[in-house]
Design a protein around this nucleic acid. Structure first.
Length: 125
DNA sequence: AACTTGACGAGGG
DNA sequence: CCCCTCGCCAAGT
């Protein structure tokens, strides 16, 4: 096997690997994924990899920006279908199109955040 | 090989 | 709270 080929594919694969691990009803941010992968990864590049992702095989909709909002609807996707799918998975959004990251943000096993994610109630005005 | 673009993020006004 | 600017790095042209 060509190590070169593997190494090049790995750039995207490492991102996809994490995205596939996000459970239903939870989300991750581009910056968080970039942070976990570290070297050579930035929120920008993670986003780049995501837009190239196979929407049939990867739960791309569970990756949103740090504001808790969907950044899609600019190119390929008609509008923010992403939000609709997430709402269907149980993620609540407010009128401004933002969800509560405190509640829905997910961290993969082995990557504990400083603050534990509390299942707090959503919907406080 | 160089320039431009882009599912972003943090900071400042 | 909203808007603008800069930085960041892979891929496409």
């Amino acid at each position: 096997m060509d190590n070169k080929q593997v190494n090049e594919q790995s750039y995207r694969e490492r991102v996809y690997k994490i995205v596939r691990e996000i459970p239903v009803g939870r989300v991750m941010t581009y910056g968080q994924i970039a942070e976990i992968l570290g070297e050579g990864y930035t929120p920008r590049t993670v986003g780049y990899v995501m837009h190239a992702a196979d929407t049939e095989k990867i739960p791309w909709q569970r990756v949103i920006n740090s504001q808790g909002a969907c950044s899609t609807g600019k190119m390929t996707m008609p509008v923010n279908i992403q939000q609709k799918i997430l709402e269907d998975e149980g993620v609540g959004f407010n009128e401004k199109g933002r969800c509560d990251l405190k509640t829905y943000l997910w961290s993969p096993n082995g990557f504990p955040s400083e603050e534990e994610v509390q299942p707090s109630l959503f919907g406080s005005p």
